[in-house]
């Protein structure tokens, strides 16, 4: 498990892929630590050697932009779109950052802690 500053995020991913041989992109998600800001979590695997690297970066309070891993791992494309959908993190360098699960007209990012439970969504709730 490696935690880096957001500035070295793409650099770490490149190191994991080129040097450590972690070619398999397992998942990418985020954690909302309320006042301490958002944290992006990604896991990559080297399936040949049985090596797994969990990468984390703390974006800091109030920050919602992060470097994209899509130029390095193509598998990160939809994961980052989901992360944008649910947490509102903008990934710089992502080729096609749209909502993936919710409809395009959705307001807000529901997995943030600041998103109120039972937010009304007319006409159905």
């Amino acid at each position: 498990m490696v935690t880096v500053a957001p500035g070295h995020w793409a650099e770490l991913a490149g190191f994991a892929k080129e040097t450590l041989g972690c070619c398999f992109f397992s998942f990418l998600t985020a954690v909302d630590w309320k006042e301490q800001g958002l944290e992006v979590v990604a896991k990559v695997d080297n399936l040949d050697d049985g090596l797994a690297v969990m990468m984390k970066t703390r974006l800091g309070p109030g920050v919602s932009t992060c470097a994209s891993l899509t130029p390095i791992y193509r598998g990160a494309n939809w994961m980052e779109r989901e992360c944008w959908d649910m947490f509102g993190i903008r990934f710089d360098g992502h080729p096609d950052l749209r909502r993936i699960l919710l409809e395009d007209t959705w307001e807000g990012h529901p997995l943030l802690k600041s998103y109120a439970v039972d937010t009304p969504h007319p006409p159905y709730r």
């Binding site: 439970v117 969504h121 159905y124 709730r125």
Partner: peptide, 13 residues
Amino acid sequence: RHGYHVVKGVDRV
């Protein structure tokens, strides 16, 4: 019921 994407009963539709 309290999920962000769930309709609270199909009788609303």
